[in-house]
Amino acid sequence: MGTDIKIARNQGTFRELMNAFARPGSLAAITPSSEGLLMDVLDVLLDHEVSFCVLGKNKESMEPEITAVTGSRTADTGSADFVIFAAGDTGDELYKVKRGSLEYPDKGATVIYYGAVLDENKKIADHSFKGPGIAAGTGFTAPGIPEGELKKLSEINSEYPLGVDTVIISENNILCIPRSSKIGVVK
């Protein structure tokens, strides 16, 4: 039985994504397709049933491309299911992202940062983690994601179970921060 390459790739990418969500702070190494890792991840998650928006300088070029590949529709920041930022300071836009309701916290958006740098070999982490799925002493380093950005994420997720779930994507690695994770700073 031969398996289609795209189906197999999507399944493999999802499993890495699932493991990364189950173990926040751990890096999932994924060999990207020619489309790049961001598009691989979007192809796993997006379809016509969900909406997305891209914020930043690449909005005009990326949104039509993502719609063409996934069939997903665009929406404004406050109502999109997936909000895609270039790694860096997002200003106040992050505060507009929907956080779900107490009855349906799963309606909170998934925030995706692309173009980050995730260094597997850097031994000293800048940020500490606590919460479900996290081994004691787990930390992570994500150059390109400013300190203030992580503080904003902590603030947005402070009223758990309301909040957003975050995926940070580098060239060939993924790191996930579900809303259940508490981010600290390693002094």
């Binding site: 999507n10 998650l45 379809d47 049933e49 799963d106 779930d165 579900p178």
Partner: peptide, 18 residues
């Protein structure tokens, strides 16, 4: 594949809110 996509999205939300 679209059915899988929906279930996969829900799995990630379920993991995020134990």
């Amino acid at each position: 594949e679209n059915a899988k996509k929906e279930i996969r999205r829900r799995i990630l939300k379920a993991i995020s809110i134990p």
